[in-house]
């Protein structure tokens, strides 16, 4: 600080000395010419800036402020819309979940019903098949018995011819065979005899 004081004092004394030399310190004596130049140049600068610079800067700043305000408004609007959409989607999702649960329940129920029906139907079909098989077996058995009976008749006739050396006429043959067969029990062959 002391040094600065010395410097200032030195500067002022130098200025004063110089002033004495030139009839007034040029450092602190204003000049009219320079003042006029200042007025002209400052005035011109102000005129140009107020016409070409400040309005454009202000306009750009206003435009940006407007853009920012609009952006904020748009962002708020979009946020609101997003919130609405979100709540709507959530509602839809909940609804869809309910529907899905309902569909699942119904599907499960339908599957259970179908399973039950299929079980009943299968059982019925199996029984039908068993019945049909029984019927077929009985028919086949009956046809086999008839065939055996025919075979036995024919053999009997042949045997009788050999024993008696006599040919029987067809009526006698038939009668004899039927008599013989009537005495034979075929029930064992058909299976009924054992059951009975």
């Amino acid at each position: 600080m002391l040094e600065l004081g010395h410097i200032s004092t030195a500067a002022l004394s130098l200025a004063a000395e110089s002033g004495k030399e030139e009839g007034g310190s040029f450092l602190v004596s204003p000049g009219i010419g320079l003042m006029i130049w200042t007025l002209i140049l400052f005035g011109f600068t102000m005129w140009v800036l107020s016409k070409l610079a400040f309005p454009k800067i202000q306009e750009a700043l206003d435009r940006r402020a407007k853009t920012i305000a609009e952006s904020i408004e748009a962002a708020e609007r979009q946020r609101k819309e997003s919130d609405e959409l979100l709540s709507e989607y959530r509602a839809r999702l909940a609804e869809a979940r309910e529907q899905a649960d309902d569909i699942m329940a119904r599907a499960r129920k339908a599957a259970e019903t179908a399973e039950a029906e299929a079980t009943v139907s299968g059982r019925e079909k199996r029984e039908e098949l068993v019945e049909a098989a029984k019927r077929d077996i009985e028919a086949e058995t009956r046809r086999s018995l008839d065939q055996i009976r025919q075979e036995v008749a024919d053999l009997t006739v042949l045997a009788t011819e050999k024993v008696t050396r006599k040919s029987l006429n067809p009526d006698d043959q038939k009668r004899l065979v039927e008599e013989a067969l009537a005495e034979v029990d075929f029930s064992a062959l058909s299976g009924k005899g054992s059951q009975n």
């Binding site: 010419g33 320079l34 600068t45 070409l52 610079a53 800067i57």
Partner: peptide, 30 residues
């Protein structure tokens, strides 16, 4: 009236010119 051109007047011209140029240059390119 002494309107002679000297160092101070040159600096006034430079200051005015620079102020006008810088501000209008920026204003045009906002």
């Amino acid at each position: 009236i002494d309107l002679s051109i000297n160092k101070a007047v040159l600096y006034l011209f430079i200051a005015s010119g620079l102020t006008i140029w810088a501000m209008t240059w920026i204003a045009k390119r906002m």
